[in-house]
C-alpha cells in the first residue's frame, strides 16, 4: 500500500478509503501535535487537495459547510447572524495559524470534550454528512460524536460536509469561552447559543449547549424549553437546567469550579445575543 495519498477529488478519496482504512489528514492541527517526538507510521489519506470540499454553499434548505472549511473560512464567510457564535468560537481557536489550517470537520472528528466548534454546531442543529463509496448518510451531530475521541464514522467513510438547516431569520448566535489566558487557550468551559427574540426581547426559541463539562458537549433542553417566553434580561438559570453536566478535574480547573461557573456563563451567553 502507498503510505501517503493526496487525491485532488472526492471520488479518488472515497475509493482509496474503500480499499484500506487510512488516517485522514486535513489541517494537521490535531494530527501532528499527537505525534511529537514519535515516528509517523500512519498510512495517510490527505484530504487537503480536494478543493471541492473547501466551500461554503447555501442550499435550498440551509448551508453546507464543506469538509475542508477552516476556522478562517467561517470567520470570513457571509453568514446569517445565527452563525455569529460559531464565528466567535473560530476567533478564539489557538492563533491565526491554527485558524488558517484547522477545519471544523477535523475539530468534530477529533471529538475532544473541549472542541470549541461543537456547542454552536449543536445549537445550530448541525448534521454531519458521512460519505463512502457505499452510501452518503446524514447524522445529527449529537449522534455523530459518541464520546471523548469517539465518533460514529466508519473506517471507509469521510466527512464531506456539515449541514446547517436554514436558521430562523431572527436567530442570533453567541459564544462564551472561559480560559486562563488570552490566546492559545483551551476552554475550561464554553457555551454556544442561538436564540430568537421578538421585538420586546422575549425569547421565542433558544438552543444552547455547554462544552468541556462532559465527555461530549451537551444541549440543555430543559433550559431551552423553560426559556421560551421569558424576557432576555430577566432570564433565570436553575440548577436543574444543567444537572446533567458531569465535569472532571483536570490541569485547567476543578470539576467543582466548572459546575459553579456554568450558570454565569449561560447567562452571559444568552444575554450577549444582542
Amino acid at each position: 500500500m502507498i503510505p501517503y495519498l493526496r487525491p485532488d477529488n472526492l471520488e479518488d478519496a472515497l475509493s482509496a478509503l474503500s480499499e484500506h482504512p487510512r488516517t485522514l489528514l486535513a489541517g494537521g492541527t490535531d494530527f501532528f501535535p499527537a505525534r511529537v517526538g514519535k515516528p509517523i507510521t500512519d498510512n495517510v489519506l490527505d484530504l487537503s487537495g480536494v478543493e471541492s470540499l473547501r466551500k461554503i454553499q447555501q442550499t435550498a434548505d440551509g448551508f453546507m459547510l464543506g469538509g475542508l472549511t477552516t476556522w478562517t473560512d467561517i470567520i470570513e464567510a457571509q453568514l446569517p447572524p445565527a452563525f455569529d457564535g460559531l464565528k466567535q468560537a473560530a476567533k478564539t481557536i489557538g492563533g491565526v495559524q491554527t485558524q488558517n489550517a484547522g477545519t471544523l470537520v477535523g475539530n468534530i472528528c477529533n471529538a475532544s470534550p473541549a472542541a470549541d466548534s461543537v456547542p454552536n454546531l449543536l445549537a445550530l442543529e448541525a448534521q454531519v454528512q458521512l460519505q463512502s463509496v457505499r452510501e452518503t448518510r446524514m447524522l445529527p451531530l449529537e449522534e455523530f460524536i459518541l464520546g471523548n475521541r469517539k465518533t460514529a464514522k466508519k473506517e471507509d467513510e469521510l466527512i464531506s460536509g456539515i449541514f446547517i438547516p436554514q436558521p430562523a431569520e431572527k436567530g442570533r448566535g453567541n459564544f462564551e469561552k472561559l480560559g486562563t489566558r488570552a490566546y492559545l487557550v483551551i476552554s475550561i468551559v464554553m457555551v454556544g447559543v442561538v436564540a430568537e427574540l421578538n421585538e420586546s426581547d422575549e425569547i421565542l426559541n433558544l438552543k444552547i449547549a455547554v462544552g468541556a463539562c462532559s465527555p461530549v458537549a451537551q444541549r440543555l433542553r430543559l433550559l431551552e424549553q423553560e426559556a421560551v417566553g421569558q424576557k432576555l434580561k430577566s432570564i433565570k438559570i436553575l440548577p436543574a437546567h444543567f444537572e446533567s453536566l458531569e465535569p472532571i478535574d483536570d490541569i485547567r480547573a476543578t470539576a467543582d469550579y466548572r459546575k459553579k461557573v456554568v450558570p454565569e456563563l449561560l447567562l452571559r451567553a444568552i444575554k450577549g445575543v444582542i
Binding site: 489541517g27 492541527t29 501532528f32 501535535p33 495517510v44 490527505d46 495559524q97 491554527t98 488558517n100 489550517a101
Partner: peptide
C-alpha cells in the same frame, strides 16, 4: 500565516 510544524 501557518505553522510549518503542522504542515506536511
Amino acid at each position: 500565516q501557518r505553522y510549518a510544524c503542522l504542515t506536511a
